[in-house]
Design a binder for these strands. Structure first.
Lengths: 188, 188
DNA sequence: GTCTATACCACGATAGAC
DNA sequence: GTCTATCGTGGTATAGAC
């Protein structure tokens, strides 16, 4: 389910916006800039979306969707596995959402915090649901006293990779293993 | 060396800008907004700085300065300590830079990536120097095979705390201990 | 050192032709 | 579904009085 290189106009607008928002933040992206990369005029965006914020909100929602789908696949693949493998599988799945399904998830995790309040409040329930899955998993794995705190630092380590990980040169399986080892502990 | 609540105009401009940039990102902050919070008109900013980018650059430089000072204090305090204490001291110092000396370091680590290229290239040597200190320390501690990768995920965990840590309710010593434990490993 | 006034441009958004 | 044209606003920045 590759979400990159959409063929319909609406999809191309989202693709372009996600990439631009990832690079410049929401406030740093102009509709004229989006339109230019899509190959239309800025006014034409309003045939597909009601406002700039609506475009950004759709990008964020899709970014969370991508994470959820990656989670579901990981959960299905690792139900019967041992505890460490379950963690490793979900870490790999989150990294997959960040790097292997278009810039949506990466745009969401980097730009959400500084996005307009209207956009943030609209998507916060979706975010919370995904975060709750993680907290529940970590609680289930029984690694530490504070699974909530553990999830936050784990998210910090995983999500920060969008700032420095190079998909051309790096290996996502390797990165997932490194992060899993750090958060599992070296002698389980 | 509290850097908050400066009394001179230049210092107040930087204080206000750092706080606003932390919240909204560079592109999300207008000079009129900065001026209003300082209590002057936007045009008066040009008596102190040559452009918006110059203000932001000064904020970032100060953010890195704060980190460097925190590092120096930690290094002086922990030279004779055991390896784990050295790591813990520097983790605590980095958190101190993020939360206990104004919003400068927090603004820098969150807004640098989406800042104008002109600003980024101007401060990148300072950033690199601080990062090199960390890589050297981690290499020295001989914890893992890849100290470079380790530093990046550690930075991710530490810096992400500006998105969720509440200084009113949380305890920075405790947070430092949690992160140190994660990155040291549970059974050294 | 701060002000008023203003230039100039880019922003998001709308109207209406095709 | 995309266009041209345009509106009103707000952005950075400058000139010059006080």
């Amino acid at each position: 389910m590759a979400v990159i290189d959409a063929v319909d106009a609406r999809g191309r607008i989202l693709d372009v916006t996600a990439a631009l928002v990832l690079e410049h933040g929401v406030a740093g992206v102009a509709q004229r800039q989006i339109a230019e990369q899509v190959g239309i005029k800025a006014a034409s965006l309003y045939h597909h979306f009601g406002s700039k914020n609506e475009i950004v909100e759709a990008v964020f929602r899709r970014g969370i969707d991508v994470m959820e789908h990656a989670w579901d696949e990981a959960a299905a693949a690792a139900t019967a596995a041992d505890r460490r493998t379950r963690l490793a599988t979900h870490v790999r799945a989150h990294l997959s959402a960040l790097f292997e399904n278009g810039p949506y998830t990466a745009a969401h995790v980097t730009a959400f915090r500084t996005a307009p309040a209207e956009v943030r409040t609209a998507v916060v329930p979706m975010r919370d649901a995904y975060e709750a899955r993680w907290t529940h998993l970590l609680s289930d794995l029984n690694l530490v006293d504070q699974p909530g705190l553990h999830r936050l630092t784990l998210f910090g380590a995983m999500n920060s990779s969008v700032e420095w990980f190079d998909t051309e040169r790096g290996n996502l399986d390797e990165l997932a293993e490194v992060i899993t080892t750090q958060f599992w502990g070296r002698t389980p």
